[in-house]
Amino acid sequence: MRLVLATDAQRYERDLVNYPAWGPPLTVEGYVTREYRLRSHPWAQAELKTWLLCADNQEVLASCETYRTDSFLRAADGSLEAGDSYAIASVFTEERLRGKGHATRLMDLLASELERASPRVHSALLLSDVGAPLYRRSGYRETPAWDWRFEPEPGEPSEGVDRLLPETEMGSALARMRRPEVPFFYWPTPAQLDWHLERERIYSELLPRPRPEANGATAGESTALWYMVGKSSTLMVLMFDARTPEAAAALLRSARRVAHRAGLSRVVLWEEPAAAPLLAGVPGAVREAREGSLPMLRSLRPGLALAEATPIPRALWV
């Protein structure tokens, strides 16, 4: 067995193979269009690689994707050391080939490849929809995964916040957000946020359904950024930086009203340790164990210990 990078033709072949798992409610044609557009986005063009585990006869046994993302180590004096981490997505083995250890072999070979990918490598991150045991075998360890869920509500979204944010201001809004005060963290780029908005655009066109009227809001120094997950009728918070309980409530009330106007069924915020105390007092907040997207981390750098409480905002999902 060997690990190889996929050609464009092989990527298309894998799209057809994994459509039943990830494609609906889109048609096959719609799913292929979605994948092509996401891969054509500037962030993916710069950071995406598709990997194949191949047998000696060239048969593809399993596949996955990696996206390079920025990560940072914080020194005792507060200074930051930038590094490279790799988010792993779309791990797939055809049903006829399952139960033979191919996914584990893929993960092991990939980790060895990523350890050599950059002189400033930090870690690998994946978000498992099949639980933890499969990836524990390859050295990954899970972190807590909780969601805060809110029901949409009628009302004017701009009431109680300073302003609503259009998609064109996502980058400037990200720049004003506080970075976590922890020894190690990941941080998205504006292009990475726009990749999520490209998903929103695609589903809005293909399903079709209206896009939300805003992609975030500010209240004082506090900021929330969100996007629509069209296939699950969810307004998903990408990044959340609330400085006070009052600001947290105002931002989430705005999100709930945006969701209501867009005809969405819920608002979801992934819990991060620093934000959790602010959310418990928000009216209508429901905390629940997340189904799927279990964050799992693996160090790729000798001596780098990854804490269980590493913050994982939705913006890191791929």
Results as ranks from 00 to 15, higher is better:
121 V>N: 03
46 A>P: 05
237 V>Y: 02
134 L>W: 05
97 L>E: 06
3 L>Q: 10
221 E>W: 09
137 R>Y: 03
207 L>H: 03
197 L>Y: 10
207 L>W: 05
50 T>A: 10
303 G>K: 00
151 E>K: 14
236 M>S: 11
125 L>A: 05
113 E>F: 09
249 A>F: 00
107 M>P: 13
11 R>I: 11
289 A>C: 03
121 V>F: 08
70 D>Q: 10
19 Y>R: 04
251 L>S: 00
175 A>V: 07
175 A>D: 12
242 A>C: 08
176 R>N: 07
270 W>I: 06
16 L>M: 06
148 W>H: 04
300 L>C: 07
155 G>D: 10
251 L>W: 00
237 V>P: 02
20 P>G: 13
109 L>E: 15
243 R>G: 12
74 R>S: 06
285 A>E: 06
317 W>C: 08
206 L>I: 04
208 P>I: 08
80 L>F: 08
218 T>A: 12
281 G>Q: 10
79 S>E: 12
296 M>D: 00
134 L>R: 04
293 S>F: 14
311 P>Q: 04
199 R>H: 12
88 I>H: 03
175 A>H: 09
289 A>F: 05
292 G>M: 04
185 F>I: 01
9 A>Y: 11
39 R>G: 14
36 Y>C: 12
237 V>H: 03
102 H>P: 13
140 Y>F: 15
273 P>I: 07
67 Y>T: 09
161 V>L: 07
278 L>M: 09
186 Y>F: 13
317 W>N: 08
259 A>P: 04
172 S>L: 15
229 V>C: 14
298 R>A: 00
182 V>I: 07
71 S>Q: 04
202 I>N: 00
18 N>P: 00
109 L>G: 14
141 R>F: 08
233 S>A: 14
187 W>M: 01
283 P>G: 04
50 T>N: 04
178 R>G: 04
2 R>G: 13
149 R>G: 00
277 P>C: 03
133 P>D: 09
220 G>T: 05
202 I>S: 02
75 A>V: 09
177 M>P: 03
301 R>Q: 11
153 E>I: 06
190 P>F: 02
68 R>A: 14
69 T>K: 11
211 R>F: 01
67 Y>S: 11
241 D>M: 06
